[in-house]
């Protein structure tokens, strides 16, 4: 067993699960979506991106691309949240919440792809 592979897999998977946890719930209900979970998903997503940097295989290029998509979505979601609450005083209206959650939904898809790719890679490797 390779420790670095464990750490790598851990972060990729954790990014997906946190993202899913935030995404779960009614799309426009602020009570169903915790800001800390979004923050954690973003931080873990960034760490996963850094872990993927510097890899050179074709698979890792795709992994890195999907990770960058995740970061982009989650940063956009965090920006919408910050602007709505602190800059414009709109507050967390259902419309804003729906935007944030749907952005995180996009990130979820990319995260899912990351995990699928990683699984395929591992499966191919063991065969």
């Amino acid at each position: 067993m390779n420790m670095s592979k464990v750490v790598f897999g851990f972060f990729v998977l954790l990014a997906l699960t946190l993202n899913f946890g935030f995404f779960l719930g009614e799309i426009d209900n602020p009570d169903h979506h915790n800001v800390y979970e979004l923050f954690a998903a973003l931080v873990v997503g960034l760490i996963a991106t850094v872990m993927k940097l510097g890899e050179r295989s074709q698979m890792s290029a795709m992994l890195l691309a999907s990770s960058l998509v995740v970061d982009l979505h989650l940063i956009a979601a965090a920006l919408v949240w910050g602007i709505a609450v602190h800059v414009t005083d709109t507050g967390l209206t259902p419309a804003v919440m729906a935007t944030i959650v749907s952005l995180s939904g996009g990130a979820l898809l990319a995260n899912l792809l990351s995990v699928v790719l990683l699984t395929m890679d591992t499966a191919g490797y063991s065969r």
């Binding site: 760490i47 850094v50 890899e55």
Partner: peptide, 20 residues
């Protein structure tokens, strides 16, 4: 560039974690 990111992996993870 790849060499750079490979070597910067741990420092970057430390930085992100510290900020978080």
């Amino acid at each position: 560039i790849f060499q750079f990111f490979q070597r910067m992996r741990i420092p970057l993870v430390v930085l992100i974690s510290a900020y978080a």
